[in-house]
Design a protein around this nucleic acid. Structure first.
Lengths: 224, 224
DNA sequence: GCTACTTTCTATACATGTATAAAAACTCGC
DNA sequence: GCGAGTTTTTATACATGTATAGAAAGTAGC
């Protein structure tokens, strides 16, 4: 892995690199933008930076890290800070919704989203907004952090689940699991589900992220 | 794919199968239980059922479906229905927590969890409990379904994010992204995060699923 | 028994991520 | 300029999921 260019400006040791991490990421971004994340393979990436597959591994640890870096890059470019509302509760909602919107507009991250927190440097400001908003509403810093986590779980879950649903819809021919299950629904055993069975698909297709988010925030604040 | 054994008991057409879907799933389960999900490969599975890799594809669509079936199987065996509490709000919490607990005890599902809803037949009862509890608290059926979805997002997100964190901790040598980011935190720009920086790791390690769940449910009900 | 048809199984091949070992291209101390 | 050390790059190899083509093993009609 490349040294952090330290204070000592000694001539670099070893064979001089022909490609850089930045170049790799930029090229990867081009590929993803042009042809989608599925087409991003280490071999093609290597070819397009004019190198060999294994050479990439000196600049990124593996493909997953590459994707995380791509997400970072994406976040840095598209996460725009909204004017924070005066009301702290609203600050929380707005910050979370901004993160959510950015992620939702970037369908390929799902494979990365399982990455722990969203700890991209450019996302930190939003995390700060959320934690600060919760504190301003009277939560202790500890509870505020837990609150942020809950919001993050909810947000990441929404993205992941929706993306999976979309993927499933893509290879659509065969009936979904869901349809099969709902078809054989016993109204005596499961009356509520039977009641909404035929409305399930459109209902779950609705975008209710913000409603749920508001409910969660309300609940977090009420528990104080 | 095998026919649903229909009413007509005609002799089966075509070459008689030497392995069955059930056999495949049962063998896969053995492998996962014994050696972990990483060791479950189509080749090994084929060998252990005494067949060839591609023969498996006549009984499961692909590896992902196999994992979904495994999850189903797991759910059917371990999802025990608790006595539903009288208080409807509590029913919602208990049902969601039961699903969560089962999933959390089954670390390998993460790769499957991105599967749309948890629509395993054995999980439906819990979904019913949740939807019914929300309706009993005064939500319309539509809002109850949306509420269930929010709870599912929160739950799935918690599992996925925590599992990813655990995985990351497994190959632990290198410093986490998080540590790097928190190290260079500017207390003027991000005062709240700086304040909790050193407590972040233990705080986020705490299991606060139920607290967040309660908050979410409270918020969903308050929005009525 | 023979042909047509259906289903299941086998053999082979390919794309992909990445491990491993060695080669290449430098700087440094001498 | 030469050997030692360091870093980057290359070549090769392997495991894995799965596509494709065709062989195998049965039934049904004749």
């Amino acid at each position: 892995m490349p040294q952090p260019s330290s204070s000592a400006p000694r001539k670099a040791l070893g064979r001089p690199p022909r490609i850089s991490r930045e170049e790799v990421i930029a090229t990867a971004r081009r590929i993803v933008d042009a042809d989608g994340v599925d087409r991003l393979t280490m071999r093609r990436l290597a070819a397009e930076v004019g190198s060999t597959p294994m050479a990439l591994y000196h600049h990124v640890r593996n493909k997953e890290e590459l994707l995380v870096l791509l997400l970072d890059d994406y976040a840095a470019r598209t996460l725009h800070r909204p004017e924070p509302p005066a009301e702290p509760r609203e600050r929380v909602v707005v910050a979370a919704a901004a993160i959510h919107e950015a992620l939702a507009g970037c369908p390929w991250i799902v494979e990365v989203l399982t990455a722990d927190d969203l700890m991209s440097a450019s996302a930190l400001w939003f995390v700060e907004q959320i934690v600060d908003g919760l504190v301003a509403c009277g939560l202790s810093p500890e509870r505020a952090v837990h609150g942020y986590r809950a919001i993050w779980y909810y947000t990441a879950g929404e993205i992941v689940v929706r993306a999976a649903a979309a993927r499933r819809r893509a290879d659509a021919d065969r009936p979904t699991y869901r349809e099969q299950v709902f078809a054989g629904l016993d109204p005596d055993e499961l009356p509520r589900l039977a009641e909404v069975a035929d409305r399930w698909a459109p209902l779950t297709a609705e975008d209710t992220y913000r409603d749920g988010l508001r409910a969660l925030v309300d609940g977090l604040l009420a528990a104080r």
